[in-house]
Amino acid sequence: MRVRFFSVSGSSAADLSLPDDIVLLHGEELDERGESACGCAPKDARVMLSFGVEDMSLTVGGETKPSDLAVELLSGYDWRKVFLEATTLGFAELFCAANALLASGATTVNIIYVEPGEYTRVSKGADQFALSEPTRGYVAIPNAIVDLSSEEVEAGVFFLGFEPERLDRALEEYQMITSKDVKLVFGIPAYHPGWELDAIIPHLPALEQHKLQLDYCSANDPEAAFECLERTRDALGTDRRMFVAPIGPKPCGIASAIFASVYPEQVGLLFDHPRRKQKRSTGVDLWHRFTVTVDRGDDAAPTATAG
């Protein structure tokens, strides 16, 4: 299997060379960049997705089913035309959609992501960010479920962002994690110089307290994140699994969604489903179009290749 990432970036949707017959799968438009991102497709070409945390259901347009049946829910959409709008989609929806498309035979997944001008802080000049509402916590996502109490899960990767409580809560509620080979990944370089400190500093207490390894990958490069995950997967023993907790930058979430989709036997997801706050960011910065191709045609060693 070969997974390749191609990316195009620009200052507006026009720079991404989007086709006219696009079908945009999107989430809630919570802020300016979300509205802009959804605005790249005409209203009648937009389809809203949402994951029901309480019952692990997926709603596509007006239709709701167990998310195990995501393939059925998305069967009416031609994967060649579908674009996943990752700015507004939550991670669970992003994974369900990408996984369903790939399971239905898609060889390409197109994704749009728009960086914010600025993330919203709790108050002016504060260290903390106001990105998420309190949530129910870690809930499994069908098709990528993992049993952390099992010894077969021997490694894990956390992609970290600005909210240290999300890692803290995982380590508190799933204390068996500390006996595994766990890697914390920070997005470096960050979207903007200096933002990496906003991610690292609040996580320092957890780093001091637990024996965890550190790694880095560019915050807005899914390919780098994918390679980072591959490094952990390469080190897995026979019949062993790993988990990925994408609780950081969305491009790392994109990589995680693709990674869990292409290696379902080895990879599970750990995710806490934050309810993202209204106005969680301001402004619009770089636009990205990521095209991921998955070639299952040969038995070559899985690799991620830059486009």
Binding site: M56, K65, S67, V139, P142
Partner: peptide
């Protein structure tokens, strides 16, 4: 127990 795993043994049709 892994509570998020056990919680997945519910619903889902």
């Amino acid at each position: 127990v892994d509570t998020q795993f056990c919680s997945s043994l519910k619903h889902r049709g």
